[in-house]
């Protein structure tokens, strides 16, 4: 293995930015699982509810939870794309 390649690999291994990104991704995924669970329980509550005022409240909560989930998924997607870009750049170098 050439020294340059070795240094490149070591750089990736010890790259703190990369490590913190991984950590962030893990945390976002954890939150997404929590939000998904919350969304399901809100759906169940909505089906069982008859009071229109409460239904409206639950629907708003659902919309908000859904918006949070969408945002989280978008961030994860962007992180994956960013990672692929960095990999391609490293291979080209």
């Amino acid at each position: 293995m050439k020294l340059k390649e070795l240094l490149g690999k070591a750089d990736v291994l010890f790259n703190t930015d990369d490590l913190s990104r991984k950590k962030q991704k893990k945390c976002i995924k954890k939150l997404l699982r929590r939000l998904s669970k919350h969304e399901k329980s809100l759906h169940q509550k909505l089906q069982a509810e008859e009071n229109t005022e409460i239904i409206e409240k639950i629907e708003k909560k659902l919309a908000l939870t859904h918006a949070h989930r969408e945002k989280g998924l978008k961030i994860i997607q962007e992180m994956n794309e960013e990672k692929q870009k960095i990999r391609k750049k490293q291979i080209n170098e």
């Binding site: 629907e59 908000l64 945002k71």
Partner: peptide, 24 residues
């Protein structure tokens, strides 16, 4: 701290809240 940071990333910005407001 890391979960708090992730929550802040998912928290909606002002314009995102406005969009949601229009829907709901």
């Amino acid at each position: 701290d890391d979960i708090k940071e992730a929550e802040q990333m998912l928290s909606l910005e002002d314009h995102e809240l406005n969009d949601l407001l229009q829907q709901t």
